[in-house]
Design a protein around this nucleic acid. Structure first.
Length: 254
DNA sequence: ATGGCGCGCGCAGCGCGA
């Protein structure tokens, strides 16, 4: 079983790359973030032709998540409990007993801004939701664009980023809180070193210089982590013409 | 110190991302 996540920064623009990547890697699941299109404009026919079912939770212009899968979804949830939030950032689905929580966690813009407070509040609500979900679904994956670099080894220049959004202590503590509920960072099951990133700024030749951050994650419950045999970041799509600034992360389970 | 790129919207230039 292969499970992947990719922030595509507009599915309209990136659809050809997504279809090519599906054909090449043949994952069982692909969680997309920043689809940036309303549900009525979701390219369902093209993706079904490629052999995937689609669950999607989108809006115009901003945000939007979708989960592509070989097995159709049941038990779909599109809202975190406890808030009436118009931003489409969550999609929870079940596929033959495997629970997939696809998230586009808020960016936060700047520490102490309103958007930063919204991010921390969103993470609090995710923590509560995840706790309940783990009781119901032992085989669970929480994956997506977390907009958090969990540790300094996930940052190309930790000194420059110290205390800034994506690296601040409250964000990192919230990330650790998710792990403490019983999740494992799949990438760190296999690789303890630095220089492995999932996002690079479009500017300053950041990709060429490997000036990136590891902010896209696949977190697996105990039951699935025991079966995890690989987790890799595929940087090849970042080399394409008109790339997303994020690149896919994929985990394999026996 | 600032913006640097790419996207959406919509037709100019701005908000946003990270």
């Amino acid at each position: 079983m292969k499970i992947a996540t990719w922030n595509v920064n507009s599915l309209r623009v990136r659809l050809p790359q997504v279809l090519a990547w599906l054909a090449l890697e043949k994952p069982d699941f692909l969680a997309l973030q920043e689809t940036k299109l309303p549900d009525a404009e979701f390219p369902q026919a093209e993706i079904e032709t490629a052999g995937y079912h689609c669950a999607f939770n989108g809006q115009k212009t901003y945000n939007g998540v979708a989960t592509l899968s070989r097995v159709p979804a049941t038990q779909t949830v599109m809202e975190l409990p406890g808030a009436n939030d118009p931003q489409r950032r969550l999609l929870a689905t079940t596929h033959n007993g495997v629970r997939i929580l696809n998230v586009y966690i808020p960016n936060g813009q700047e520490v102490d801004s309103d958007k930063y407070r919204y991010k921390l509040d969103w993470l609090d609500r995710l923590q509560e939701f995840l706790e309940a979900e783990l009781e119901e679904f032992p085989e669970l994956v929480l994956l997506g664009d977390f907009n958090i670099a969990p540790e300094d080894r996930d940052v190309h220049d930790p000194q420059a980023w110290a205390g800034h959004v994506l690296c601040s202590n409250p964000e990192r503590e919230a990330f650790q809180g998710l792990l403490d509920l019983g999740l494992h960072d799949a990438f760190r099951l296999f690789e303890s070193g630095g220089d492995h990133y999932s996002w690079w700024d479009y500017r300053q030749g950041a990709f060429r210089r490997n000036h990136g951050l590891r902010i896209d994650h696949i977190l697996a419950s105990h039951a699935l982590a025991e079966r995890c045999v690989a987790c890799t970041i595929d940087s090849t799509p970042r080399k394409h013409e008109r790339p997303s600034d994020h690149t896919p992360v994929m985990a394999q389970f026996k």
